[in-house]
Amino acid sequence: MSRRRIGEVLLLCAATLFASPALSAELPPGFAYLRDIGPTIRQDIRYAGSANFLGRPAKGYDAAECILTTEAAKALSAVQATVTKQGLTLVVFDCYRPAGAVADFVGWAKAGGPEDPQWHPRVRRDELVAKGYIGAQSSHTRGSTVDLALASVARPSRLENSCGLREADTLDFGSGFDCFDEVSETRHADIPAEAAANRHLLVQAMRGHGFRNYSKEWWHFTLEKEPFAKTRFDFPISPR
Rank of each mutant, 00 (worst) to 15 (best):
I134C: 01
K131Q: 13
F173C: 00
T141A: 10
A189G: 15
A130H: 10
S138H: 03
G132V: 05
P156V: 10
Q118T: 11
D126L: 11
M206I: 07
E167G: 12
G164W: 01
S175Q: 12
S184L: 04
D190N: 15
A195K: 01
S139Q: 12
R158W: 10
R187I: 09
E194F: 05
A149I: 00
G174C: 04
G174A: 07
D147N: 15
S152G: 10
A195L: 07
S138E: 10
L128K: 05
D172V: 00
R122F: 09
S138Y: 01
V129Y: 14
V183T: 10
R155W: 12
E185M: 12
G132E: 12
L150P: 08
E115N: 13
V203P: 02
D169R: 13
R124H: 12
A193G: 08
G174I: 05
K110A: 02
R199L: 06
L201A: 12
L201I: 00
L201P: 00
H200P: 03
G174M: 00
P117D: 10
N198V: 00
D126N: 15
R187Q: 04
C179T: 04
S152T: 05
G132S: 14
G113M: 05
G113W: 07
Q137N: 15
E194K: 11
R212Y: 14
A197E: 00
H188G: 04
I134S: 04
S138W: 03
A151T: 13
E182M: 06
S175T: 15
A196H: 02
G143W: 06
L159Q: 09
R199W: 02
P121K: 05
H188P: 04
G210N: 04
A149H: 01
G174Q: 11
R155Q: 11
I191E: 02
S157N: 12
S157F: 14
T170M: 02
G164N: 12
A195E: 06
V183R: 00
V129K: 06
G208D: 11
G164H: 01
R166C: 07
H140G: 03
L201C: 03
V183N: 02
G113V: 09
Q204Y: 05
L150I: 03
N198C: 04
R212I: 14
P192S: 13
R122Y: 03
F180E: 04
E182D: 15
V203M: 10
E194G: 09
N161A: 14
R125L: 05
Y133C: 02
G135V: 05
S138T: 06
H140S: 05
R199H: 09
P156E: 04
G164K: 00
E115K: 10
D178Y: 13
R125P: 02
G164E: 07
L165P: 04
A149F: 01
A109M: 09
V153K: 10
G112L: 08
I134P: 01
A189K: 13
L148T: 00
A130M: 10
S184F: 07
V146D: 02
A154M: 13
L159M: 15
G113E: 06
W108E: 08
A195M: 06
R155Y: 12
S175K: 09
P192H: 11
H209G: 14
R125S: 03
H200I: 01
G132C: 08
R125M: 11
M206T: 08
G132F: 03
S138D: 07
S162P: 08
